[in-house]
Design a protein around this nucleic acid. Structure first.
Lengths: 228, 228
DNA sequence: CCAAAAGTGTTCATGCTACACCCATGA
DNA sequence: TCATGGGTGTAGCATGAACACTTTTGG
């Protein structure tokens, strides 16, 4: 118990929930987990846990993320705090949500089975418990916002990637097709890509050059929107 | 006590803090209050209160706002949740912050004295308790973001206003001077202003037409940034 | 008649959009 | 040799930036 100078005030259960997003090369996906306890046992939910008295919400989010994915140093950003009285049918719980972007390939099938988790396309989500669907939708919306001003997309792609893959990613984020020529032109003009001498040959006869993200030049990234 | 299916989990004190912003025709200001209790008694702080067990954070924020300003139906948006362990020296408190935009003229001097509150320019804030300065800065940053995509500015101006006043407001929001001609051209092109037949004559010989905000045409507001 | 703010228009540069042609290669 | 995805360039258009002149009227 901490020294409490605010006696008489009511305490509340506070959880963190992490909406974990990944990209499989074609679609944006969210990593959902089958809930292991009541209420709503075995319903699909995002990953969460209660905040402990010795940790901040950021720390709790990182802990939850690490427990289920084994990952650290992941892109993690606070999203929104949900506090409706009856949002959780088990008790009054306030949930601070975070969204995380991970390299989908780093999350093995083995881990999926261990934790009863599964990737779902954002276009085809299952029924989710409580207000978790709203959380996922808000995460997608935030990703769309961020993509215009931060080079976030790179958190979702493997270290080296082709311009086609990058284009697919932005199409998935915005939900709209982009013009290949205009897209690559703009991307190259931003000066945040470094072309490698290596080609990806699996998906085309000619082969497409790999690129890596040039972090040093990321200071003034301003992509605006990508249209057409 | 609610029925708690999550026994053994720790509860935490949760407060809401409202960063109230206004515009006096020249500067953006924040309404701060002298704290009336320990710890940090009589330090400047934003307006806050603990969340009660029968209200959501949104409801709590509206309650706090109403208590101190008497206003309802104010623009109020959730901002960020602060949760560092030692952010409040009295106890471990998680704070869900909101920012509010009000018409500064609606807040009388009488109310200021009653509640020991005062308007401070965002450029000249006093020393604030805990992490409240960070809250105010985050509110200003959010206002800057929103001003580009929502017609928020109108929440801060009186019902009828001149283009000069509107320009001043945007200059205060962005902290940069704007070109009068380009600004008015763009504003008029957005189709969200309605010109009145009435002039404001106090601040110029010629007199400037009043405008009102045309709410019906606010569907697809996209101001982008205002530069130069 | 002059100072001070208001109202309006033109030019130039930049960036976005739309669109077409050639390249490399495995089958 | 041909189908498939990869790479690049150009012309037109829209938007933003820079900038100057006229109008009104109280003093």
């Amino acid at each position: 118990m901490d020294l409490n100078k605010y006696e008489g005030e009511q305490k509340i259960l506070v959880s963190v929930d992490c909406i974990i997003l990944g990209f499989d090369g074609e679609q944006l996906k969210a990593l959902l987990v089958r809930r292991g306890f009541d209420p709503e046992k075995s319903g699909w939910s995002v990953m969460g846990g209660f905040i402990r008295s010795e940790e901040s919400a950021d720390e709790a989010a990182n802990r939850v993320l690490h427990q289920l994915t084994g990952m650290r140093n992941v892109y993690l950003e606070q999203l929104y705090t949900f506090s409706d009285l009856n949002r959780d049918s088990g008790a009054r719980v306030i949930s601070i949500t975070y969204f995380a972007l991970i390299h989908i390939t780093n999350y093995s099938e083995q881990l999926q089975e261990e934790h009863e988790t599964k990737w779902f396309s954002l276009d085809n989500l299952p029924s989710l418990i409580f207000d978790h669907k709203e959380m996922v939708l808000k995460a997608h919306a935030r990703l769309r916002e961020r993509a215009a001003t931060h080079a976030l997309g790179f958190e979702l792609l493997p270290q080296k990637f082709t311009l086609s893959q990058l284009k697919c990613l932005y199409e998935a984020i915005y939900g709209t097709p982009l013009d290949r020529r205009n897209f690559t032109k703009k991307m190259r003009s931003l000066g945040i890509l470094k072309k490698l001498n290596e080609k990806e040959t699996a998906s085309s006869r000619k082969g497409a050059f790999y690129y890596v993200f040039n972090k040093s030049r990321n200071g003034n990234f301003q992509a605006g929107r990508f249209k057409t």
